[in-house]
Design a protein around this nucleic acid. Sequence first.
DNA 1: GTCTATAGCCGGATAGAC
DNA 2: GTCTATCCGGCTATAGAC
Lengths: 196, 196
Amino acid sequence: MPKQTKTYTKILEAALPLFAAFGYKGVAMRDIANTVGITAAALYNHFPNKEGLYLKALEYAFEAQVVGLSETLGKARTTHERLTAFVGFWVETFGSDVILRALLQREMTDADETRLALLVQHVFQPIYAEAENFLVSLSGRYDPLMLFTSIAGLVMYHFETAPIRKLLSGFHPGQDEHETLIKHVTTLLELGVDIA
Amino acid sequence: MPKQTKTYTKILEAALPLFAAFGYKGVAMRDIANTVGITAAALYNHFPNKEGLYLKALEYAFEAQVVGLSETLGKARTTHERLTAFVGFWVETFGSDVILRALLQREMTDADETRLALLVQHVFQPIYAEAENFLVSLSGRYDPLMLFTSIAGLVMYHFETAPIRKLLSGFHPGQDEHETLIKHVTTLLELGVDIA
DNA sequence: GTCTATAGCCGGATAGAC
DNA sequence: GTCTATCCGGCTATAGAC
């Protein structure tokens, strides 16, 4: 199983959108092979089995996704800027990459031990580590991990519920624009609901 | 296909935890049948096919889940009490019912048109309709649906990320207690991050 | 490294006896 | 309404030629 062939990468890149859209069981080895332009049997020259292919595809999708957070946080001077940068990071990272977001969502619902560890190692732990100081500096009032989860959830749930909100009575397309979302979340975090 | 037999309900109740845990494709008709104590063929006396069974199971799980929200909101006198009640509603409804939450999560990632409509009709639209006035009264500053999504996300993302957070460095078991979560979310909503 | 062919298994669904 | 038996299609994975 040579790892650095061009085909190897082509397979991963063909597999990712499929797994993201239809899930592990929803994708057949034939589907991936067809997309690449080879037969299913040829896949086994590069990967031991379907499970192995999927795992490598996940790693490939997740690695090097967290670049730039500490830079972005460092550049920002005021707390307001840093908060906006942090919220913006979530919105841009997962708002622009539908595949990454879908994979993440599927992994969270399926909750396989091995793959969750991968997800933590490549995505959540690095982000959390870089953000922890900032989170504490934001407010000593809150548990850092809970605040982390809350900010992430504020952003991510808007994406997760997008197909649902389209059907709700209060929906307006403008709600899904990145700029609007960033502003909404940062304002809510800074000012709260502002009970009179 | 008689609908009111006892077996009919027993099938749905056997199927729901299976679908919640393993997803639509992860559950075989034989699995459901075995759990009930009949054979797979017998299932077709009650449902036209697997898809039909799944749809009825979803309806069964979702209907009458939204009881009590307007009562709860009505009882609360101060805005603080109403906010706590609303957050508490999310936490209790979905925090105590793992199956309901898993089904919801799976439906949101798979995003089938027909089933999303079901979900909106039975779950989200009723809650949103009952909460809209309250949301506007909370703060005129925010778009009601965005605020609705934000509050829901604050709660739900803590549940969704539970398996992940267990592996993160800042984790502490107390973070998963309902009381802690309610307090965290309401405080965050009322006061924000409190930038000095 | 890719192909064709196929083994072997599993899952949905039906037929027909009871 | 449930059973046994079975069909059929789809899927993973392997064997072996090129």
